[in-house]
Every structure is written in structure tokens, then in C-alpha cells.
């Protein structure tokens, strides 16, 4: 009786692995194609060649010389890093306030905030641009950063993980004479590192890939971010596919690096930092 069971198990397993292999292939193949394309000439890409080519250095030279790509990379890095730091700081403080302090109107305000999540950015874009113009911030990198530093999603995200934070610790710290900011800084923040890591990954990636808002608010070549540069590369009458794909490969790297360096915290952060 044992033998047929084993066979059935092996068959089931092989089906599982086969299915998983196919799904993995479907997921990984576009990335591989992008990498292979980045090393190929335009003709090789458009003829459907999927092997690693020998044009990487030439593609990189064209990319850097013709499109001011490194400056755009610097602009994107500046915007994404500053946005991530400010957004984490401001949104987590707001979430702390919403969760820890007692107030009658708190839940109403929070409800209104959550409602704003339903409004698509395209609807907010024009009024937001008017505000930026009024404040004389248009065509400055800070105009890309500021609208992203207080996001309702991040407040919601932090608040959800603060729910589980033991109030006794906060209360005993208060008894010991610590002020609220000290409690936040020395007790809550260290315990919530996984949440911060997860939020950092989400914010950094969103900011790094942001396209529409930088397009509207930035108007000079020197300030363009990477997604804008890639869009320009793709829209020429004679597009150079190898260079375009290489630019996308390079643009993908920082998000991947940020993700893998914070990966061990990421899952813990999503499932709740405090156990």
C-alpha cells in the first residue's frame, strides 16, 4: 500500500514544481529579456534576439553622453531619499498621534483622511500644481518632494502597527518623566524598525518611479528625473531599443537594492512589528 502512495506523492510534487517553474519563468523572463536587451543593439532587440549581446559598453556610452542620464539619476536619488526620510518621519509621528492620544474628534478626522485615499491623483494634480505655483516652488526638486511627505496611506500603515504596541510601556515611560517625543524616539521607534523598513521600501519605490507629478512640476532639462528621461528616450522617431532597455535596467537597480537590503524586515513589517 505504501508504494502507490509514494508514487502519487511524487506525481503531485512534480506537478506542483512544474506549475511553479512555469509561473517563475513567466515572472522572471521579462526581466531577463530587459537585461539581454540592454546589452544588444537596436536591431538585435527588434528582431527578437533574447541572448546576451555585446553592445553593453556602447549602449552605456550613448546613454550617458546623449541623455544626461547620470544627472537625472542624481535628481531621482535626491527626490526619493529626501521623500522617504521626510515621509517616514512625518507620517509615523501623525500615526502615533492618531493611535496613542485620546480625543473625541480623532476618529472623525482620521475617517476624512482615509476618504481622501479614494481620490485619484489625476484629480488632485491641477489644484496641487496651482498651490505649487502660488508658493513659487514650481520647477524645483522640492516641489516633487513636498506633496509626498504626508501620505494617508503611510499614516494608515503606521497606525495599524502602532495598535499592537503595548500601552504599558508608554505609560511607564511617562511615569518616568519622558516627554512624548522622547517616548516616540527612544521607545517606539526602535521597536518598530521592521515597520519603518517596509514603509521605506514602499515610499522609496513609489517616489523613484513617480512620473506624472514630476512631469507637471519640473520644466528644465537639468531637473528631469529618471522616468522622464526614459520616456524621452522611448519617444524618438528612431528609438534605440538597446539604450532604452539599459536605461530601464539601471533605473530598476536602486529599488532592487533598497528592497534586498531591507528584505529581512519587510515581511515582519507587513505582518506587524510588535509580537
Amino acid at each position: 500500500m505504501r508504494k502507490p502512495n509514494k508514487i502519487v506523492k511524487i506525481i503531485k510534487l512534480s506537478f506542483t514544481y512544474m506549475f511553479l517553474s512555469i509561473v517563475s519563468f513567466i515572472c522572471v523572463f521579462p526581466f531577463y529579456w530587459m537585461l539581454a536587451g540592454g546589452t544588444s543593439t537596436s536591431n538585435e532587440v527588434s528582431s527578437g534576439n533574447i541572448s546576451i549581446g555585446s553592445n553593453l559598453v556602447e549602449n552605456y556610452r550613448i546613454l550617458v553622453e546623449q541623455s544626461d542620464y547620470l544627472r537625472a539619476f542624481g535628481n531621482s536619488a535626491f527626490v526619493a531619499i529626501l521623500t522617504t526620510i521626510l515621509a517616514l518621519f512625518i507620517s509615523s509621528l501623525a500615526a502615533y498621534g492618531f493611535e496613542i492620544f485620546k480625543s473625541k474628534r480623532k476618529s472623525k478626522v482620521y475617517g476624512v483622511l482615509l476618504l481622501t485615499m479614494m481620490v485619484p491623483f489625476a484629480a488632485l494634480m491641477i489644484p496641487l500644481y496651482k498651490v505649487v505655483i502660488y508658493l513659487e516652488l514650481s520647477n524645483k526638486l522640492i516641489s516633487v518632494v513636498l506633496p509626498a511627505v504626508a501620505t494617508v496611506f503611510l499614516i494608515f500603515f503606521f497606525k495599524q502597527s502602532f495598535i499592537k504596541f503595548p500601552r504599558e510601556i508608554i505609560q511607564s515611560a511617562r511615569i518616568d518623566g519622558a516627554n512624548e517625543f522622547r517616548i516616540f524616539r527612544s521607545i517606539v521607534f526602535p521597536a518598530m524598525k521592521p515597520t519603518y523598513a517596509a514603509a521605506a521600501i514602499l515610499t522609496f519605490t513609489a517616489s523613484w518611479n513617480n512620473f506624472l507629478w514630476p512631469l507637471i512640476t519640473l520644466s528644465s532639462n537639468e531637473l528631469q528625473t529618471l522616468p522622464l528621461k526614459i520616456s524621452i528616450l522611448s519617444s524618438s522617431y528612431t528609438p534605440h531599443y538597446g539604450v532604452i532597455l539599459l536605461s530601464i535596467v539601471i533605473a530598476t537597480l536602486p529599488s532592487i537594492i533598497v528592497f534586498f537590503s531591507l528584505q529581512k524586515y519587510f515581511v515582519a513589517g507587513l505582518t506587524g512589528a510588535v509580537k
Partner: peptide
């Protein structure tokens, strides 16, 4: 003379946004 390079579709989006808000225009 400052020449700003944009993708065609991007330029049109930006031009519409700027014309309707009195935003930055060339």
C-alpha cells in the same frame, strides 16, 4: 536659448496642465 527636451505625449500633457493653471510655460 534653453531647449527643453520632452517626450511628445509628455509635452502635450504638461502643456495642457500649464495652460489651464497659468503654470510654467515656455
Amino acid at each position: 536659448i534653453i531647449i527643453v527636451d520632452m517626450a511628445k505625449g509628455d509635452l502635450e500633457t504638461k502643456l495642457h496642465a500649464s495652460l489651464s493653471t497659468d503654470g510654467d510655460l515656455p
